[in-house]
């Protein structure tokens, strides 16, 4: 095995090693500190964990692709909320109510369409104006949130539909609906990024944009597709979340963009683009959720969770830099 391959394996495996470490730590620490009698490393607990990872996880998967492209999307939280509102609200429309339970899939389509359209707006602006995606989506984060408030003011939007809640609570092969969505999306996106021309071009563009342009890859439309994809996923996340609760607040989804980016970076995706993987992001998502639950399990509150996640993110960055140092003769700039 060449040293390069070993290093690559180390990079890919790091997040899973971290997860194992977390599991071991919380299982052992739980023996002494646990505030409940349940076992941390139980199947039920792990399944619940997967389910709870779903909303941010699904967004983080899309964020991975956008970041591999060398872009970023800060507007996903607002898209999440707007899609959820569209879904719940659309079921109250007269013609939809006439459809009975068939309104559910239709309302989903509306919500997903909302996400795709919002993503397309971002993508088109990035493509046509050449303004950095960070700024474009920072703006649309505000703008989309404005649309959220425009819909229903500061009131929560609710609609109770028992069929929908039953579906959201349903289990299949032991996995909850939300978990299936997360895993399904992960599988499809993993196939997209590793098997298809679109996925490979995403890496090429993030890695060396000039080379990609010279090779005739249509970078603009490519960006557009990926922004539509992350819009779709943010909307999907909104559906998964609000189907279970039947209600959505106009402030829901705030800071999701930052959590999603945190998960993606923990998974090892490069900020500059060109490197990253869907599977590692899934690892990042699980690692964060594990940390939340684990710390809760040993009696630490949200405050510790926030503190620890923040510091771990910085530590990962620091380690990554140390691993990539060239040695003493490096130019000091």
């Amino acid at each position: 095995m060449t040293p390069e391959k070993r290093k690559d394996l180390l990079k890919q495996g790091a997040i899973w090693g971290f997860i194992v470490l977390e599991l071991a730590f919380f299982s052992i620490a739980g023996q002494f500190l646990s505030v409940t009698d349940t076992v941390f490393l139980s199947v039920d607990n792990m399944l619940l964990l997967l389910q709870q990872s779903a909303p941010i996880g699904i967004i983080a998967l899309g964020m991975t692709i956008v970041m591999i492209n060398g872009n970023i999307d800060l507007s996903v939280g607002a898209t999440f909320a707007l899609a959820a509102i569209v879904m719940l609200d659309s079921m109250t429309w007269p013609f939809m109510q006439a459809l009975g339970d068939w309104a559910i899939p239709l309302s989903w389509c509306f919500a997903l369409l909302t996400g795709v359209v919002l993503g397309a707006i971002n993508g088109l602006i990035v493509w046509k104006t050449g303004v950095d995606a960070f700024i474009v989506t920072l703006g649309s984060m505000l703008g989309f949130r404005g649309l959220v408030f425009a819909y229903n003011g500061e009131q929560p939007t609710s609609h109770l539909n028992w069929t929908l809640i039953d579906f959201a609570e349903a289990q299949f092969l032991g996995l909850n609906t939300a978990s299936w969505f997360l895993l399904g999306a992960a599988l499809l996106l993993w196939l997209l990024m590793t098997r298809t021309v679109h996925g490979r071009n995403a890496y090429a563009i993030g890695n060396n944009r000039d080379a990609a342009v010279n090779a005739g890859i249509k970078v603009g439309p490519h960006f557009l597709w990926n922004f539509m994809l992350i819009g779709f996923l943010a909307a999907l996340s909104g559906i998964v979340f609000s189907s279970g609760t039947g209600s959505v607040n106009p402030n829901d989804g705030m800071l999701y963009e930052l959590w999603a980016i945190t998960a993606v970076v923990l998974g090892g995706t490069k900020l500059a683009g060109g490197y990253g993987s869907i599977v590692s992001t899934l690892g990042g998502v699980i690692a964060i959720q594990l940390l939340r639950k684990g710390l809760g399990y040993v009696g630490a509150g949200t405050e510790t969770v926030n503190l620890v996640i923040g510091l771990i993110l910085i530590a990962v960055l620091f380690l990554d830099r140390q691993l990539n140092r060239k040695g003493k003769e490096e130019l000091k700039t």
């Binding site: 490979r200 071009n201 000039d210 080379a211 005739g216």
Partner: peptide, 17 residues
């Protein structure tokens, strides 16, 4: 003008996989 995270084959056929 190569993308160094990609394989040799992907670089050679960049844009026309």
């Amino acid at each position: 003008s190569l993308a160094d995270e990609l394989s040799v084959a992907e670089n050679i056929w960049l844009g026309e996989l």
